[in-house]
Simulated scan of single mutants.
Amino acid sequence: MSNDPAALPEKAREEDAKVEFERKEGEPTSAFKGASWAALFIGVAAYLIGLFNATMELNEKGYYFAVLVFGLYSAVSLQKAVRDKEEGIPVTNIYFGISWIALMISILLIGIGLYNAGSIILSEKGFYGMAFVLSLFAAVTVQKNIRDTQRARERD
């Protein structure tokens, strides 16, 4: 029998194709992974493009950039700590608490910064707030998808 795929009956080729692209148990769908990455890219890009085009001082831009980076890191760190605890992986209470506090501080800092920003009109404040929240949520989702995919593939 030939190894040429064209020589195989059509039904056998379809079954082989299904096996190659079959999702592992517990692995997120490609569409969900793609949507999560797209949301992260769109949120961060919109925030940064808005920041680049803003008519504020460079030190203010630095503040908002640092708050975004701090928020993204703290959100992913908290998600990992929560997931580790759920899966029985040891997480110290101090790290778990610091993760929560860091996320709350980043949200508080963006809120205070936008509230006190006299040079930003209300619609821009809403834009920054929404881009920030979208970015945090998407970062958590992307990290969760990566972990779920890795775990599903390790089970095989």
Rank of each mutant, 00 (worst) to 15 (best):
Met1Arg: 10
Met1Asn: 07
Ser2His: 06
Asp4Met: 10
Pro5Phe: 10
Ala6Ser: 11
Ala7Pro: 02
Glu10Ala: 13
Lys11Ser: 06
Lys11Trp: 08
Asp16His: 03
Asp16Ile: 09
Asp16Lys: 06
Ala17Gly: 04
Ala17Val: 08
Lys18Ile: 01
Val19Ala: 08
Glu22Leu: 12
Lys24Gly: 05
Glu25Val: 12
Gly26Arg: 07
Gly26Cys: 09
Gly26Ser: 07
Glu27Trp: 06
Pro28Lys: 09
Pro28Thr: 10
Ala31Ser: 12
Ala31Gln: 14
Ala31Ile: 14
Phe32Lys: 15
Phe32Asp: 14
Lys33Ile: 14
Lys33Arg: 15
Gly34Pro: 01
Ala35Thr: 03
Ala35Phe: 09
Ser36Trp: 04
Trp37Cys: 00
Trp37Pro: 00
Ala38Tyr: 04
Ala38Glu: 09
Ala39His: 08
Leu40Arg: 01
Ile42Arg: 08
Ala45Pro: 00
Ala45Glu: 11
Ala46Gly: 13
Tyr47Leu: 04
Ile49Gln: 07
Gly50Asp: 04
Gly50Met: 07
Leu51Val: 03
Phe52Asn: 05
Asn53His: 08
Asn53Glu: 14
Asn53Ile: 07
Thr55His: 13
Thr55Lys: 15
Glu57Val: 03
Leu58Glu: 14
Leu58Ala: 14
Lys61Arg: 15
Tyr64Leu: 14
Phe65Gly: 01
Leu68Ala: 05
Gly71Asn: 05
Leu72Thr: 08
Leu72Trp: 01
Ala75Val: 02
Ala75His: 00
Val76Asn: 00
Ser77Asn: 13
Ser77Pro: 00
Leu78Arg: 03
Val82Tyr: 04
Asp84Pro: 01
Lys85Phe: 02
Glu86Arg: 15
Ile89Asp: 03
Pro90His: 12
Val91Met: 07
Ile94His: 10
Tyr95Asn: 09
Tyr95Trp: 10
Phe96Leu: 11
Gly97Tyr: 07
Gly97Ala: 07
Ile98Arg: 12
Ser99His: 06
Trp100Asn: 05
Ile101Tyr: 08
Ile101Lys: 12
Ala102Ser: 15
Met104Gly: 04
Ile105His: 07
Ser106Glu: 05
Ser106Arg: 05
Ile107Arg: 04
Ile107Val: 11
Gly111His: 00
Gly111Met: 01
Gly113Asp: 07
Gly113Ala: 09
Leu114Glu: 04
Tyr115Thr: 11
Tyr115Ser: 03
Ser119Met: 11
Ile120Met: 15
Ile120Leu: 15
Leu122Arg: 11
Leu122Ser: 15
Leu122Val: 11
Ser123Val: 14
Ser123Arg: 11
Glu124His: 06
Lys125Pro: 01
Lys125Thr: 02
Gly126Glu: 06
Gly126Thr: 10
Gly129Glu: 02
Gly129Leu: 06
Met130Ala: 12
Met130Leu: 15
Met130Ile: 10
Ala131Ile: 05
Phe132Val: 00
Phe132Gln: 00
Val133Arg: 01
Val133Gln: 04
Val133Phe: 11
Leu134Thr: 07
Ser135Val: 04
Ala138Gln: 03
Ala138Ser: 11
Ala139Met: 08
Thr141Gly: 00
Val142Trp: 10
Gln143Ala: 15
Asn145Met: 04
Asn145Asp: 10
Asn145Ile: 02
Ile146Glu: 03
Ile146Lys: 12
Arg147Trp: 12
Gln150Ile: 13
Arg153Thr: 03
Arg153Val: 07
Glu154Ala: 14
Arg155Glu: 13
Asp156Leu: 12
Asp156Pro: 02
